[in-house]
Amino acid sequence: MAGWHSIEGPAVALPQDNIDTDQLIPARFMSVPRKDGYGPYLLHDLRFDSMGAPRDGMPLNAHPEAQILVTRRNFGSGSSREAAVYALADFGIRAVLAPSFGDIFASNAVNNGLLPARLPEARIEVLLDLLAENPQVMRVDLQDSVIRIGNEVIPFELDPVWRLKLLNGWDDIDMTASHGSAIAAFRAERAQSAPYALLKDQPNDPRNP
């Protein structure tokens, strides 16, 4: 995955609390292979009515060019489904601004190059008002952890580890491979200190507990 330093694009307001990952991608779409693309399923049941017609008044229908989403607290709570991030990323969203995020969602986001930026609730409300009628171009600078809109420069919060990861597009598996010997040593030590933690073969006794 490629790293990035800044993005500039249309920001859209989604003024709702608790947009959970079941809403971001309903469970029925989750058997689709990733290469088929998850963009069409993003917030599917909010964007489309039960006949499949796009709903009026849903900002992402009016503005499919959106790259930045501004929303309310506890975004991405619930299920650990990384497909929620795939749906956002495949739709073209690169950053989400909210007062708080589900922990697993935020970590999934960073693993896919999507920024979960935290801003105080009051700031978010001001931005939501600003974007209420129309999307506006916003710039996100990762290095300085600020967003710029019009003449305003607004800081956001992001864990420093996650900032590094997004900037560098780090791949954890590669990073971990360099620690192979430390892992092997730890494993040997754990087998001594906590023998119960290792599993051997299947027990022969399929006794019902």
Binding site: S80, R81, E82, A83, V85, I104, F105, S107, N108, N111, N112, D172, I173, T176, A177, I183, R187
Partner: peptide, 14 residues
């Protein structure tokens, strides 16, 4: 709980 990228990581490295 962890996401799919992390599941792949645990599979590959424990």
């Amino acid at each position: 709980g962890i996401g799919a990228t992390e599941v792949a990581h645990v599979l590959a490295t424990q």
